[in-house]
């Protein structure tokens, strides 16, 4: 397990402050829902943890260490865009990616391959959008990575694929050894997944807390709270 900490982190792109003096500690062994409209800084937060962006100010640490090849070995990162090599087949992609990770679980990968209905011989560039999303979640969940970062894993895909992706997250999540951070702007479908939620607005924390406690205290679903904060 690993603790991810943001200490007064800022990151700008030109004049836009994507993340603005953000401080936050992600609790171990939980699924955190990173919620907010487009451009609220969700994706930037995940890239900062994955080491694909470097903070302008402040510090992001994973178990006390700033992103490096060592922390990258602890992180499974699923970006929103298509980041796989189109010319590879599904099987080749698995072979290539798994070569880099000591925590790759071959059995789990084979199980997920079947569950997702992915053809191992299909070329990645020929896969439908839903199938590509399934392959991405397979790659993220076939490892026993202490930190799993899922950037909009459900966006723009068909209902069957969405349901498969959600199911894969729930069934492969190991609460005793993993921390999952999942960003989404579509709360309805995924809110039952979250232990905690973090509402981001203009790169700052607008609201955060345990999902169940928020429901109990406010008598509202996370979706309704979302509309309240961003509506």
């Amino acid at each position: 397990m690993a603790t991810v900490v943001f200490e007064r982190v800022s990151k700008s792109f030109g004049r836009v402050r994507a993340v603005d003096e953000l401080s936050f500690t992600i609790r171990e062994g939980t699924i955190l829902g990173l919620l907010g409209p487009n451009g609220s800084g969700k994706s930037t937060m995940l890239k900062l943890i994955a080491g694909l962006y470097r903070p302008d100010a402040g510090r992001v640490t994973i178990d006390g260490q700033e992103p490096s090849p060592k922390t990258k070995a602890m992180v499974a990162y699923l970006p929103e865009i298509d980041y796989l090599y189109g010319w590879m087949t599904v099987r080749q992609t698995l072979e290539y990616v798994s070569a880099f990770y000591a925590d790759w679980d071959r059995e789990r990968a084979e199980g997920l391959l079947k569950f997702m209905g992915l053809d191992p011989e299909a070329r990645v560039s020929r896969l439908s959008k839903g199938m590509r999303a399934r392959l991405k979640i397979l790659l993220a969940m076939s490892r026993s990575a202490p930190v799993v970062l899922l950037d909009e894993p459900l966006s723009g895909i068909d209902p069957t694929s969405r349901s498969r992706v959600l199911r894969a997250i729930v069934s492969e999540f190991r609460a005793d050894s993993q921390t999952v951070v999942m960003s989404t702007h579509d709360v309805v479908e995924s809110e039952a997944l979250f232990d905690e939620v973090l509402f981001l607005k203009d790169g700052r924390v607008a609201l955060t807390g345990e999902a169940e406690r928020l429901r109990e205290e406010r008598g509202k679903s996370i979706q309704e709270l979302f509309e309240e904060v961003f509506g």
């Binding site: 994955a50 080491g51 694909l52 090849p69 060592k70 990258k72 070995a73 992180v75 990162y77 970006p79 865009i81 298509d82 980041y83 796989l84 090599y85 189109g86 990616v97 880099f100 990770y101």
Partner: peptide, 15 residues
């Protein structure tokens, strides 16, 4: 250009 830099830079390999 093909966004595979996301994969390349997230791999835990030394440069």
């Amino acid at each position: 250009r093909e966004n595979t830099a996301y994969l390349m830079l997230s791999l835990p390999a030394r440069a």
